[in-house]
């Protein structure tokens, strides 16, 4: 795998690797690509794909407002501080 391809994948995956671990990871990634590349020889294209009908799109639930979760449940994973919750900064 070329370094430039690896860097593009890192960016798309929002991951980064130290130089010390990069080579090893690239090898492991290459092994899974090599393992699956046999399917490139299959005689098929997108026209051979038919809908699987696993989703009943005609049977979606009504778009109605439902009661929300209680706030204390939703905030159970935040860090409590006195009578407040600490919400980490999101916007720069």
């Amino acid at each position: 795998m070329e370094n430039s391809t690896f860097e593009v994948l890192c960016e798309a995956s929002q991951l980064s690797f130290a130089d010390t671990e990069k080579e090893n990871f690239m090898e492991r990634l290459s092994s899974i690509i090599e393992f699956t590349e046999i399917i490139k020889n299959i005689d098929a294209d997108s026209s051979s794909i038919e809908p699987q009908n696993s989703v009943s799109l005609g049977d979606l639930r009504e778009d109605t407002a439902l009661p929300s979760f209680p706030a204390e449940k939703l905030l159970a994973n935040t860090e409590p501080l006195f009578d407040c919750y600490v919400i980490p900064k999101i916007m720069e």
Binding site: V8, L9, T36, I39, K40, A44, S48, I49, E50, Q52
Partner: peptide
């Protein structure tokens, strides 16, 4: 990714239906 989509993802889906 654009350059691999047809070679891998589409082929894998075709195999799924086969």
């Amino acid at each position: 990714s654009g350059e691999n989509y047809n070679d891998y993802f589409v082929k894998a889906h075709a195999l799924r239906y086969k």
